[in-house]
């Protein structure tokens, strides 16, 4: 049997280490007391220490991660449960916080007893940055999609497109109230034709917005209630109360002209 041949076994061990050293991300093994028993080259260079020195420490002493010493530690969980575990974490090396994702697995001896744990670590700095960027971009899209338009003397229109969440609703509220003050408008039309889904949260926001505009001496008309939205609101059981609603922006504008005693006439 080749496995019994001491030379081949040594070669195998040597090969395994060389393979692990070729992996460009830290791989580490610890014993049951979390003392480091192995660290590949990527890990050593990240920590800036030779392997001989690293094996004198416990992993928590070198990683200083948010999970170290807490029940969140996946290495501990893997050793306790015998199952692999992955999580996001943040390590602190030389005062520098690095966002990481790590996967820990139990390390077993030939008899299957858990004798420690092994984990690999991925630096997710760029992923975290991308996620952050994505969040900022979606926020930007939201902001630019909340314009308040002075349509006529005393009439402001706010076309709402896309998804309304509480942050967006707050934005709409601010935009509208600022515009009402700025233009001394008497009527504001909230056109919700382009809203992706009018659910109870959105309806609640709309009710609040109309209440706030009322306090500023402005009437709020809601337009763009499509047959689909009307059916949805009824099914949900939402009562928009005394909020004036219309199917189209055209209808609401007609109402607005009437309320302000404007008359639109064809002259020829």
């Amino acid at each position: 049997m080749t496995a019994k041949n001491p030379v081949l076994t040594a070669l195998d061990a040597d090969l395994s280490v060389r393979v692990l050293n070729q992996i460009p991300t830290p791989v580490m093994a610890v014993d049951k007391d979390f003392k480091i028993v192995f660290m590949n080259e990527a890990g050593c260079s990240l920590l800036g220490l030779p392997l001989g020195e690293i094996t004198q420490y416990k992993c928590s002493e070198l990683m200083n991660s948010l999970h170290c010493g807490t029940p969140e530690c996946r290495m501990n969980q893997a050793m306790q449960s015998g199952a692999r575990a992955t999580a996001r974490n943040e390590v602190n090396i030389d005062g520098r916080a690095v966002p990481i994702e790590y996967t820990a697995a139990p390390l077993k001896d030939e008899a299957g007893n858990i004798i420690g744990g092994v984990e690999y670590v991925i630096d997710i700095t760029s992923r975290v940055r991308d996620e952050q960027k994505l969040r900022e971009q979606s926020r930007t899209i939201m902001e630019i999609s909340t314009p308040a338009i002075s349509l006529w003397e005393g009439i402001v229109v706010l076309p709402v497109v896309g998804v309304v969440d509480s942050m967006r609703a707050q934005q709409m509220m601010n935009t509208m109230l600022a515009k009402i003050k700025e233009t001394s408008s008497k009527i504001i039309i909230l056109d919700i034709q382009g809203v992706a889904a009018v659910d109870t949260a959105v309806a609640n926001h709309l009710i609040k917005i109309t209440k706030a505009t009322k306090l500023m001496g402005c009437r709020c008309l809601i337009s763009g209630i499509s047959p689909a939205v009307a059916e949805t609101l009824v099914q949900l059981g939402i009562d928009l109360g005394d909020v004036a609603t219309n199917a189209t922006l055209k209808d609401s504008l007609g109402d607005a002209f009437e309320l302000l005693h404007y008359e639109v006439r064809k002259t020829k």
């Binding site: 998804v163 969440d165 992706a196 889904a197 009018v198 659910d199 109870t200 949260a201 959105v202 499509s226 047959p227 689909a228 939205v229 059916e231 949805t232 099914q235 949900l236």
Partner: peptide, 17 residues
């Protein structure tokens, strides 16, 4: 149809919220 899509999307929005 449009109405059905709206009903389903709203239900999903409700649960997601």
């Amino acid at each position: 149809d449009e109405a059905g899509q709206s009903l389903i999307a709203t239900a999903v929005s409700e649960l997601a919220t």
